[in-house]
């Protein structure tokens, strides 16, 4: 490429060698549209006969795709996926029931970093309301996931049909539809509690596992252990309940095992 004699951009710093590979800068220029059309075609003419540069170019193309896809938001989402993958590994290693461990391993293997649905929760200091950001974690939802979490208008019963005394108003988020299982998540900062209720789980089917993962930098490292919720049948109803209690202020992710 170095013998071209015109005064195009590619002429700069052209060495006297007669034979050469394309430099990383030239290949980068090709894939970042900073070469003139004529120079792009000169690159193509070279690559038409140079296997080494063809291979290098395809690597640069892959890198260019990553650079294009990169945003601060994508960066944050990637970190969250990593947090979920690590939490699955930790929970799987600690699970004492073989069947649960196998399900966690299968989740990690097939959907590492993704879930049926995910919810971000911020529990503020006692006395303040819980903040639930329901729309903040769709990037964690697996492709084709059935659940889309959305805020619900009223608190849900978590023990049978009703409570004797009205609880502090939790924030409730629900997902699911008329033809499949549904999930409701009630978050109470007052009680430091997150309650997950699953309804309409088909008979004989296992309800999805639920992981609660501390994510905030304000939480002490020791408090960052993921908590595994294995839903249990709720007395007096057909619902399944997973309850996380004693939670301190901080940020959390609630994620659901992908449905079969």
């Amino acid at each position: 490429m170095n013998e071209r004699t015109d005064d195009s951009a590619m002429n700069a710093q052209r060495p006297s060698a007669m034979h050469a590979h394309l430099s990383p800068d030239v290949i980068a220029g090709y894939f970042s549209d900073t070469l003139s059309l004529d120079d792009q075609m000169l690159v193509e003419e070279h690559v038409a006969t140079c296997d080494d540069c063809a291979l290098a170019a395809q690597g640069a193309l892959a890198a260019g795709t990553v650079v294009d896809r990169w945003t601060a938001r994508a960066h944050g989402q990637a970190v969250t996926r990593t947090v979920l993958a690590e939490a699955l590994a930790t929970a799987g290693a600690r699970a004492t029931v073989a069947a649960v461990r196998q399900r966690l391993e299968a989740w990690a293997e097939r959907w590492a970093g993704q879930a049926e649905a995910a919810l971000r929760i911020v529990l503020d200091a006692p006395g303040q309301a819980a903040r639930v950001i329901a729309e903040a974690a769709p990037d964690l939802a697996r492709p084709g996931g059935a659940w889309q979490l959305a805020a619900a208008p009223a608190p849900m019963p978590t023990r049978g049909a009703a409570r004797r005394t009205p609880p502090p108003q939790p924030i409730v988020v629900t997902a699911g539809g008329p033809d499949g299982p549904t999930a409701s998540i009630a978050v109470s900062a007052e009680r430091g509690e997150v309650v997950v209720r699953l309804d309409d789980v088909p008979g004989g089917a296992e309800p999805p596992l639920v992981l609660l993962i501390p994510t905030g930098p304000e939480q002490a490292y020791a408090d960052r252990e993921p908590l595994l919720g294995t839903p249990q049948p709720s007395p007096g109803s057909e619902a399944w309940i997973a309850r996380f209690t004693g939670l301190g202020p901080g940020s959390y992710l609630v994620v659901f095992e992908p449905l079969p």
């Binding site: 490429m1 170095n2 071209r4 195009s8 951009a9 590619m10 002429n11 700069a12 710093q13 052209r14 060495p15 060698a17 050469a20 590979h21 394309l22 430099s23 990383p24 800068d25 030239v26 980068a28 220029g29 549209d33 900073t34 070469l35 003139s36 120079d39 080494d52 290098a56």
Partner: peptide, 18 residues
Amino acid sequence: PAPVADAAPLVDHEGAAR
């Protein structure tokens, strides 16, 4: 974009790395 002025060198001076 228009071509960038500070042109890239044509030859890979680290060719051995390839």
